[in-house]
Every structure is written in C-alpha cells, then in structure tokens.
Simulated scan of single mutants.
Amino acid sequence: MTDTVHGTADARFDKVRSLLADNIRSGAEVGASIAVDLHGEMVADLWGGYADAARTKPWSADTIVNIWSSTKTVTSLAALMLVDRGDLDVFEPVATYWPEFAANGKEAVEVRHIMSHTSGVSGWDTPFSIEDMFDWEKSTSRLAAQAPWWEPGTASGYHASNMGHLVGEVVRRVSGKTLKEFVRTEIAEPLGADFQIGALPSDDHRVAEIVPFKRRAFDLSTLVPDSPMWKTMFGPEGDPNSANAEAWRRADLGAVNGHANARSMARVLSTISLGGTVDGVRLLGPETIDLIFQEQANGIDLVLGVPLRWGIGYGLPQPETVSSIPDDGRICFWGGWGGSMIIMHPDRGLTISYMMNKMSDGVIISSDIADTYITAIYEALA
C-alpha cells in the first residue's frame, strides 16, 4: 500500500512513490518530499510521513523544512543573477565589491573562488560559535580579516557554514539588499516559490522538525588539528538540533538555513534546467548558465576528504562520490547535511528535488536513500 504518500505523479514514477512509502513505513524516513520537473512541467510532486519526530503531525502539501547545504544552490543563483545583469563579474577579486576582504593576503581571491569553495576561507578562525553566525556584521568582518588556510584557487575545501556569508556579503554590497531579502524579492516572489532563507514567524507552524542523525560522517576527535578540515568542522562545530531553534530560523545563513520543500526547490532551480526562464520569468541567460559548468576544482576536497568537482556555484558529477547521477551531458547539483538533494540537468530540461527531515547517518554528500530515489527517477525517464 502507498496511502502514506500524497501528491501526484505520472504512472512511470510508481516505483518512486513505493520507495518513499516503504521508507516511511520502515522508519528510514520520518517525513519527506520528492519533486521532478521536466521541461517546466511538475511530473512528480510527492510527499508523506510526519513533520515531527514523535510522528504525530502529518507532513502536508505546504510543509517546509530546513534544507541545510541545499540552500547554497539558491545563494549561488542569486550571485549569478547579478552576473547576468552585468553588476558582478565572477573573475573579479572579491575585494572589488567588498574592499575589506583584501586583508591578510586575500586581495587576489576572486568571486568564483568563494562560489566554488576554493578561496582558502572555508570557515571561521576559532573560537567561533553557531550563535556568532547570526550576527552578520561580526561574522562577515571576521571573514574579511582572516588569512586563507591554503593557497586560493589551488584546491577546493568545502565552505560548509560560511559560504552564505561570503557570497551573501558580495550580493549585499552589489545589490544593496541582504541575501535573504534578495532571495525573497528577486527569486521566490517572482517565481511564486515557497522558499525562504530562514523562516518567518508566521510560518513556524509548518516547519518540520529536524530529526538528527545518530552517527556523524566524521569522528571529530580524529581530525588533524589545525588542518582545513579541523578548522572548518570546528569553526563553528555543527549541531543538527540548532535548526529547530527560533534564532536559527530568523538568521540569514545562505549556506545552511534555507527553508523549502521539494516542490519549491524544483521550482527555483529549474531556472538552470530550463535555460534561465521559468513561466516567462527570466532570471538568467544561457551564457551565464554556461559559467556553472566551467570546472574550478577536481580532486580530493580538503574539508570533506572525498573527490569533488566544482563548477562555479555548483557541484559537477563525480562518479566516485555520487554514483546515482549519470554521466549524461551537463549536470550540476548539490545536497544538504543529512541527505537532501537537488539536481539540474539542462540538456534534458530536468530538475530532481528531494527534501526530508530525518537526517541519514554518516552522510557526506548523498545518502543511500537519496541515491535510490534518484536512480529510480532516471530509470523512469529512460
């Protein structure tokens, strides 16, 4: 039976519906949503399970959830929109737009470096807490003042928690709007997409509770002190329970606190898959989308310790790391802590989105659960 899953989908996605239902019944999922947009048509829009750990509150059509690092895909879209307008150049130094950032040897760090995790500034010098991230002026001034942890542009080191502050401050300097305001007025509202960085108090009742993992991907006690990995993981140390706090929801954290569901994420990121225009709303042009696929790094990431390929703003497929994404033309993607995933496939006009509240154990990029859905979706479309 699949009556625990709601929404609509073409019959070819029956396996995807069944997988979601099975995972909810088994407890592998608490609540989740899956969406597939093909050539601008939402051919699958499914959801089910529960919005709370106690499994008392159903996951509904308008449930939203903290999507962790899947947020970065929207933050990158905001920057690319400014590029498309001619207001921002990814090959210019960050300091062109944010002069204070030139301090301590960062004068040559380019905008593309902070968008592709190669800037050498993958976190904050410690001590630095999650609560410190909520203070925009304090957190961005700290980033401007510190030195890079490796030679910028030579390797990627995942900008886990601070990418939204780095790119967001450039967006603010160029547009005059905070990142969350830019995303709301320039992306979510024009597209009619239920996406926010943070969440409004009036939406708290429909925000799903994050259900933390039992096992981290890293045993933090084994990390080499003062390595980029150690510095990033402790600057600040992530706590999955933080996403359930009111202060987190009110903050402007473009790396980690987007609130959405699969449908709204597919709506926003289909911008890339559909050539830059969604239902007549133009956010990007084809030449700007081409920038995404210019490879910036390809090798072992200094923070995550796995092989990664980065374009400008987005991950590019790397079979050794995410085997469920096919080698089939131009594809870009990224995921969130615990297993959420958004995939853009412009050559097929395809966007795949999966957002959930139960975090899978040991996830670095894509969970086993996400991989089964992605594989089944591509099989259905074969």
Rank of each mutant, 00 (worst) to 15 (best):
I210N: 11
L143W: 06
W248C: 14
S323L: 02
A370R: 13
P307F: 10
D252V: 02
M341W: 11
F91P: 02
S116M: 08
V268W: 11
S141R: 14
S161R: 05
W136K: 12
V281P: 08
W310C: 01
R85V: 00
E186M: 09
L291A: 11
S119Y: 07
T271P: 05
S161L: 13
S323Q: 02
P58Q: 14
M233P: 09
W98C: 09
N298F: 03
D89F: 01
D89P: 00
R173Q: 14
W337R: 10
L308N: 03
F13M: 12
I365Q: 03
H259V: 01
E295S: 02
F195L: 03
K180V: 01
I369M: 10
I342H: 05
D252N: 11
K180H: 03
D327E: 06
A266S: 15
D62H: 06
A262V: 09
G339F: 12
V278R: 09
D371C: 09
F195T: 00
T372E: 10
E295W: 04
D194C: 10
K231P: 05
M356Q: 12
V121H: 13
R216G: 10
S116V: 11
N257Q: 05
G164Y: 00
G329E: 10
H6C: 10
I312A: 01
D37I: 05
N104K: 15
D52A: 07
I377Q: 15
T75I: 01
P190M: 11
A247P: 06
D87Q: 14
A251V: 02
R184P: 00
E320A: 13
I325S: 00
G48E: 01
N261V: 07
P148D: 08
M341H: 05
K214Q: 15
D45R: 01
T185D: 14
G27Q: 05
A208M: 02
P317I: 00
D3W: 06
Q318R: 12
A370T: 15
G335V: 02
W59I: 07
F134Y: 04
M1C: 03
S26V: 03
